[in-house]
Write a protein that binds this DNA or RNA. Structure first.
Lengths: 231, 231
DNA sequence: ATATATAACCGTAAATTTAACGTTTAAATT
DNA sequence: AATTTAAACGTTAAATTTACGGTTATATAT
């Protein structure tokens, strides 16, 4: 016992955003809380930090436990520490967020673990300060989609420009001019066009692109800023 | 005991940045650590979170205790939680930062509490992961000075445009074109020109400005972005 | 008194970027 | 062969940014 001070419960909460290119909707993963207080209510996925565990590993563990997912985008957002935030005791909670490219496989994995996807504008009431956490996450999403091409975390490896556009429209909840968007995003040299087309949405087919990891990292470090025109 | 889980030491560390319009230098406040391990080494100011205390109040208390300062800009940055970050035990630390407008009074208050200001490029070795924390703070400073006019937190209530310019030059560590800077910052309607001049730096004197709090808040919420031209 | 020096301040033109919109293309369907 | 539709390409005016040059006010030196 090197330090002589009182200790505190430390927890992780995790905002899991998912995007499905098929139905073009942003979703949030929620879980039916099993422990009291508030057992049975909807909440973010979460759990306690163990003493012998890095907090980033706690977050990975929580995500894995509740969703089966691993090796996905997972980042710390903010720490919530009001004394009265949890009536069950003094718990300080570190909020993480994860961005998931939804496909049927991932949807199934998640469902089999008892969590459920909700559309962002159809969320149920949430326990504790979880609503504040959601708001923080949504505003971070908007902020990040401008200042770094974080949108890519939500799309499959190969995607079309129209798909990317519709993701941005879902994040900003408004329409965006497709011609200007295309020009802007292509001018960043962040996309690599493949010799493949996706024909699920049109007869002509849309070119598939992948993501230039190198240029992405460069832009990120140089402090890139993508302004998106209102359509 | 509502929850059955092990608890953890939770601490606050606080990056205190100061700027003095006289010597035009960005400074960081450091403290000679009193407790083992590493007693005698330089560290950020910090302390443990009490069970009955909001973490933001812990941060305020830590700042007050070490510097005598209160009612200053203080914001949470990030939580550091590697298991091996502190050889003294498992301590998860929440990093805050504070931005201070330095004047002689504040300098004295701080000195009398045993802390010391260091210029950013002349920092001593720091304990634990405090160097990482400093790096995070510096990059946040650059990021924030672009996306919100956070620079104002570091200037006195009345300041001149040349002073504001030199602060930005100190933050970005490069020269900025004064004519374009002036145009840009005035176009935001964030400054209110006073009928007073500051003549410490020139015979002509530079107009003093104050800060339009209302427009500042508006710009901040609208997601303002100040691009600064290289001179 | 007048000249000088200097920071503060003002202005402009070229280059670039943004915003708003029209047109063409490819391929499946009728 | 005509039609339809999403995808892709192109154009122009307006706004902004960049890179400068010139003017102003005033303390200090002559």
């Amino acid at each position: 016992m090197t330090y002589n001070h009182e200790k505190i419960w430390l927890s992780i909460d995790c905002l899991v955003f998912g995007y499905d290119v098929k139905d073009e909707n942003l979703k949030l993963l929620l879980f039916e809380r099993k422990v009291n207080p508030f057992a049975g209510s909807w909440s973010l996925i979460g759990g306690f930090v163990n003493v012998n565990e890095d907090i980033c590993h706690s977050a990975e563990r929580v995500l894995k436990t509740f969703t089966g997912l691993e090796d996905v985008f997972l980042e710390q957002l903010h720490t919530f520490g009001k004394t009265e935030r949890d009536p069950g005791g003094r718990v300080v909670s570190i909020l993480y967020w994860s961005l998931i490219k939804l496909d049927d496989i991932k949807k199934d994995i998640v469902n089999s673990h008892g969590a459920r996807w909700f559309e962002l504008d159809k969320l149920p009431n949430l326990i504790l300060d979880h609503e504040r956490m959601v708001n923080l996450g949504v505003s971070q999403l908007k902020k990040n989609a401008i200042s770094s091409p974080i949108g890519f975390e939500l799309l499959p490896e190969k995607f079309t420009i129209p798909q990317l556009l519709r993701l941005y429209e879902a994040i900003y909840n408004r329409s965006i001019d497709d011609r200007n968007f295309r020009k802007k995003i292509l001018s960043t040299d962040i996309l690599i066009r493949l010799n493949e087309k996706d024909k699920t949405n049109s007869k002509k087919g849309a070119y598939l692109y992948k993501f230039n990891e190198e240029n992405y990292q460069r832009l990120k470090s140089e402090g890139y800023h993508l302004d998106i025109a209102i359509g």
